[in-house]
Structure formats: C-alpha cells, structure tokens
Amino acid sequence: MSPFQLNDPGSSFHDLLQSQYPRLFLGRSDTAHALTDNAQLLQSVPHGTTILALRYRDGVVICGDRRATEGYTISERRIEKVYKTDETSAIAISGAAGPCIEMTRLFQVELEHYEKLEGTLLSMEGKANKLSQMIKTNLPMAMQGLVVIPIYAGYDLKRKIGRIFKYDVAGGRYEERDYYATGSGGRDAKATLKRLFKTDLSGEGATRIALEAIYDAAEADVATGGPDMLRGIFPNVKRISEQGVEDVPDEAVKTVYETMIAELGRG
C-alpha cells in the first residue's frame, strides 16, 4: 500500500489521498471532462433527496428520507442518507448518491485520521471547514451535475451547544441557528420546520417535528419517500448530544408516525 515516506505529508487524509492516490480522488477534473454533458446519462445516476436538521435542548436532531431516484424512477427505497461521522457529529447527504456516499466515507476517515495522528479531536468549526474544502474540490464534478450538498450537524464540546452547517455546491459553508432542510423536498420540509420549531425543544419533541417535516415533504415532492408502513421503511433519525450520537430506532419512528397519522385522520 502507501509507501512510507520520510517527508511528512501532514494530518489530513484528504490531502494524503490527493497526493498519493490522485486517481482515487474525488472531483478530478479529467473525470469530470470524461462525463459528457448528457442529461440522459445524468438521469441514470441515483440522486438522494430530502434531509434536515434542527436544534433541541441538548444538541441537534438530524434526519433524512430513504428514497433515491434516477430521473422519474425510484432506484432505491432503503438508501441511508444520515451517517455518524465521529462520536459527536453526523452528516446528512443530498445530491448524486455515489459521490455523496464516497465523500461521507472520506470525511469519516479524515476525522479519525486526524484524531489518531494528532492525538486530539478537531474542533466542531475545524471539522465543518474541512468538509467545506472537500466539497470545493468536487466542484468540477458538480459542474457536470454530480452535486454533493450535505448538512453537517454536531455537538460542539467547547461551546456546549448543537450546531448545524449547510453547504452550497461551491463549498460555501454557512451556519444555521435553529433548523435547516435541503434536497428536492427541502422547501416543504423547511415550511413545516418553520411552523413547528420552538427553542428549547425536548429530544422527543424535536424528533417528532423532524419526522413530520419529512412526511410533509413526501406529500408534496415525488422524490422524497415518506414512512412506508407496508415494507417497514422509515426515515433515518439521529440525535446528537454531549453523550454522543444516538440512533432513533425504527420502532420509535414508527410509533411517532402512527400517532401522527391517527391525529391527522381525526383532524
């Protein structure tokens, strides 16, 4: 594998990959050129859609639906869009599924690599900035339509708060105070979040709002998958607090939806 070299290449795995394995590197401009500007070809690439995050009392809730589409076809019903990136942060992805998952994997290794080499954790700000640089290097691919637009959320151990970062295709990084949603159903999800968000929500309360936002997005947007009671497929939710990243189990999500649907039926 990698040759042991005597001059130090630094503590970033992303940079190490770029210098040692340029062929594996995301966003190579020649790969982007090789992709013709062919709309039909691009439609055959699975795209992931609605993702969101909102703050609550102890940290932040991050959530994503499970559908991936190829043009007008559903290509995947069970895709995961929310990934734990380290002990106190997680990423949700929207855009071209392949590059998104690849970038997530690279980002996970990046954080672990830094921690092991330096013997210390990156700050929340440092992690968010590194992700921004990684998205920027994907720009040539993004120009061809293979965009990666994540939401990065985590618990800032220094400031003792949950934090949410959103990104644009060019790697621009913006911090959101309370909540954010993006992807094809993002606008609808955001409308629900705006309507229901309050400061100082409980973990359960914030989870319920996140799931309701996904539900509303799925009602209005064909590319967003709502709860699938028949197959037992539910949106992924993670709660991040000082204690770490906690998966909300499918059964709990199912219960929330059952209650919600019963209430909607009555109303």
Binding site: M1, S2, F4, P9, F13, L16, L17, Q20, Y21, R105, L106, V109, E112, H113, K116, L117
Partner: peptide, 9 residues
Amino acid sequence: IRHADMTGY
C-alpha cells in the same frame, strides 16, 4: 496510521 487508513479506505 497512514498505511492502515489508506488500506482501509
């Protein structure tokens, strides 16, 4: 660490 992370990736 670089060797291991690269192999794992």
